[in-house]
Design a protein around this nucleic acid. Structure first.
Lengths: 154, 154
DNA sequence: ATTCATGCAAATCGTTTGCAACCCA
DNA sequence: TGGGTTGCAAACGATTTGCATGAAT
């Protein structure tokens, strides 16, 4: 799926920015690792395999750009660094994350079951929901078969 | 409501830690500003009014301690710093936050409407939900009466 | 040719840590 | 008295920025 590539070029042109090999390479890495939640540093290391001369600052700047263009999505798993995922369906509501407080694993829930909740929020608060981020903390299947410890937090 | 104070003293004793004027002062500030989402720096500034000699490191250490004891709760509004709120009902599911992408304001939704969703997650994923964090992004009542711009993230 | 993007290093920001002096239990 | 606690300053890690060079349009 190279649709993101075309979209990227167009949006760059529209804003008067330029396509460069570095930007291309960074987007490529993200596309190749769809489904993972890569940190900036991890993306940097992956890009360096093909482009050893790339600077970390360029990765930071490009990720900011891609986030701005809504091609990627910033995540926060509270581990001290920014992580990103591909933003496949720009206008869709996001999926939810299941974060295991035992092993630290992250699963994804693809269903979106919050629509009725959002109607209620509009009715009660006059707040128009455009997007949401949901994180559930608990024990994943594997860990819940062992001895659980403590609920996690943000 | 000074129940938190007593709880704090007891939990400190239980762990062999000590009550100090600084810890007292920090908890006091948090109690006095219930409902706000104070950052570490803001708490520091407020405590300094009464205790000009307090060090920022002490505030960081105490907030870590209070978070550990689950007397406060760390928030993330993606503004580059940690924010905290009083953790009134230790075992309760948290309330949700409505974040306006126009004016940046944060409202709170007190209802918890995610229980059926969590049952479904258990059924489909074998994941036992202990807690959750929900952020809705959109336009608050006031802003939606003006011209909206762009959906928010993370 | 113009303008934006890059790499590098220095700067910045929030947070953490080492340590000697200090204070609660 | 003794061990946790404090304030200070230095260290730290992630991210940002200034600037001269280099590349894309």
């Amino acid at each position: 799926m190279a649709g993101e590539n075309i979209q990227f070029r167009e949006q760059l042109k529209k804003k008067g920015y330029k396509m460069t090999t570095q930007r291309q390479a960074i987007l490529d890495v993200i596309l190749q690792h769809e489904g993972e939640h890569l940190s900036t540093e991890e993306i940097y290391e992956l890009v360096k395999k093909e482009h050893p001369d790339i600077g970390l600052a360029t990765v930071y700047r490009t990720l900011l750009l891609l986030d701005d263009m809504e091609l990627i999505y910033k995540l926060d798993f509270d581990d001290g660094c920014n992580r990103y995922e591909l933003n496949r369906h720009k206008d869709d509501h996001r999926h939810h994350h299941l974060i295991c407080t035992q092993c630290g694993g992250v699963e994804e829930v693809e269903e979106d079951l919050l629509e009725s909740l959002e109607e209620q929020i509009l009715k009660n608060y006059g707040f128009i929901v455009l997007n949401h981020r949901v994180k559930f903390y608990g024990y994943c299947k594997k860990c819940s078969e062992n001895s659980p410890k403590k609920a996690g937090q943000d």
